[in-house]
Design a protein around this nucleic acid. Structure first.
Lengths: 219, 219, 219, 219
DNA sequence: CATGAATGAGGTTTCATTCAT
DNA sequence: AATGAATGAAACCTCATTCAT
């Protein structure tokens, strides 16, 4: 019987484990500084100080300032695509899944403010801090979320849950409002308040804001 | 009888008229460069070259790089607040006025791509390129639009045009989708296509995306 | 009989007279600005504004910034050399003439503060604002005053008015104290107070500061 | 028993010692360049080149050009105030101490020509290169010397060593001549010649330049 | 692995001087 | 003669990146 049952990820030496930990500390510090000052106003001096490492140490983990920003975003965005994918799996009704999606994003926007501020500003500016190649990669990940939502909406339409609206419009409605929610948190102070608001919001977009459902035509 | 009936604004000397024209040329060039490269990646060398003036000439009109950005945005945003104000005057139904609003913004996003890319990226990053004082001023102008929309929506609710939803949510819906529309143009190539899509979109948010208006309760 | 009895200096046309007047206005303005800010911190914009002319106009009278400074100093220093020369003519006793010299300088330091501040600062820094050639010229004028004083002191020694001290020392005593007086005005508020102090001062350097004239030896 | 008896000042690491040494090298280079060209004509390029460092290295030790000038002067002037204070301690006669003072300043003006040229030119122009706050600080140090001399002279008067002359006048005599001596070195080539001249000079101001001590009145 | 002094390219800003009007 | 917009050289300063220790 093999006593060495450790998986590769468990066979990290102390050295390697420490190195990974340091990398994480730097990423967290950099996220905070980037979020507060913006990529261009942030200096490596400040990030190093915040991370309690020397400036030189940053270069042991990241090849340059750009790579630091890229690493911050890539690491997390990947995870979140998976989360979204799981939530919008099609096992429940579209309305329920969409509600879950909004709520997850709401929680996220409270839990990781720094990261989200950073992600939003960088995405809006087209990742102008990054080389074209890296910017494209990140945009691709971002687009993935749009695709997941769109595909799920198509399916809901086929299931008879949704009326027949152009996908760009539906996606624009959802995407725009999620982004808006995450950035402003609709002026709420706590995630619970925001959660409650989500239920109302979902109701709103599903049933419409108009008093009378005039002009409704089920083509 | 005084023959000199010219108003002051008409008595600009050729010198003054030229100076104003040159100021405009610089603003246009700067808008283009800022939009393409972002504020921090743009250099005054490039702006000067684009404007076909020397670098020093920029300082005859603007006190520094920051002032250049601020001037670009302030000039136009002011005008647009007035336009929005006029459109959402309350003389027509909310639905009609909101449609006009979306269409005007759609047209705007096509006519002045450079400016809007710039405005959006800068606003998302909280105008981090500007001093706190100036950033606040611009945010205040921006908030004005939100206020106008919110107030108009309240009125519509009182008129019985809208159901009773929280203002933050309604505003989030409208604001988020307008912003999304202006930035992505919903993947349309021409303003006409976008115009047509707006009608569908308005219908969507007024009557809801759900097939059945289940869960509808007229509190 | 020749009716045109005007001397050359009187035959200036209105044009020429005006030009000279303008030149003087510029010189006065420049003196004030240079004195307040120093040569390097002063800008031609500021001088032009102070003189109520355009920047370009400065170049109608002076070939460049340096020439402006040079003209200011040369014009006046020349006159003052002549005044010193006249005062220390040797017609009266050395003590009386030296007293007159100090008093004239005292009056000067009150009447033309701007100019003297400028002259002193520029001279101390070796006219570092000027080209070597011009700096030499001005230093030569300046040295002229030292020479006049030294020569006059020699004569006084021969006349039996002064004891036998090295000329460099005597000149150092006089020159140093005159300069000090002109720059600090010995903390007096009015020229009259300073005049009175001069009498005491002259008495001091002629009879010595020591209580007992010990160590006196009339070599 | 603690073997580590080193005082903190002795425990500088090699890094720290080198940093201080480099700071000194830069100060020396800057002093030379400033003295030769004047503050405004000197460029950081030139100072960096003279110091054999890069331009950026200057900013590791000094926050800007102004700080460089300020540091040069502050460092030394402080020391010299202490030296003057010690020399004019009142333990010997005023005449002997004043002679020592002049000789020390004479030696100083030969040993540190660069620094003194710099100090004199900058002081005369009211440290116009510095911010008001820093200029005031330096002037305060400078005034301290005047105060020390004046106080010592008062004491000498009370001791019966000096006759009764206004302090401003006595100080003007001493201060003016010391400054003049330090700047011109009375045209001497070596410090020894200047030393000898000081004895004569002291004799001159103590016993007066007049052949006859007429007008002497021991009030 | 960790440090932080040193580098130097590149940016913003200033201002004496010119010149078309 | 007078203007002031335009120029462009040159200055100061920043900071990502390197490298000897």
């Amino acid at each position: 019987m093999n006593l060495d049952t450790k998986k590769p990820s468990e066979t990290l030496s102390r050295r390697e484990r420490e190195k990974l930990a340091h990398r994480q500390e730097i990423l967290i510090a950099a996220t905070r500084v980037f979020a507060q000052k913006g990529f261009f106003n942030a200096t490596l001096d400040e990030i190093a100080h915040e991370a309690e490492f020397s400036k030189g140490a940053l270069y042991l983990h990241f090849s340059n300032k750009e790579d630091l920003l890229y690493s911050i975003i890539e690491d997390k965005v990947d995870k979140y695509v998976q989360i979204v994918n799981k939530i919008l799996s099609g096992k429940k009704s579209f309305k329920v899944e969409l509600t879950d999606y909004y709520k997850k994003m709401a929680a996220f926007s409270f839990d990781e403010k720094d990261f989200f501020n950073l992600l939003m500003t960088q995405h809006t500016s087209g990742f102008s801090a990054l080389s074209k190649e890296k910017a494209k990669k990140l945009c691709a990940i971002h687009d993935k979320v749009n695709e997941i939502v769109t595909v799920r909406a198509e399916k809901a339409k086929e299931n008879g849950e949704l009326r027949d609206f152009p996908p760009a419009a539906v996606n624009g409605l959802i995407h725009g409002s999620v982004k808006n929610m995450m950035m402003t948190r609709w002026s709420f102070e706590t995630v619970e308040e925001l959660h409650n608001a989500v239920d109302v919001f979902i109701n709103m977009i599903f049933t419409g804001i108009a008093k009378e459902r005039e002009g409704y035509s089920d083509k």
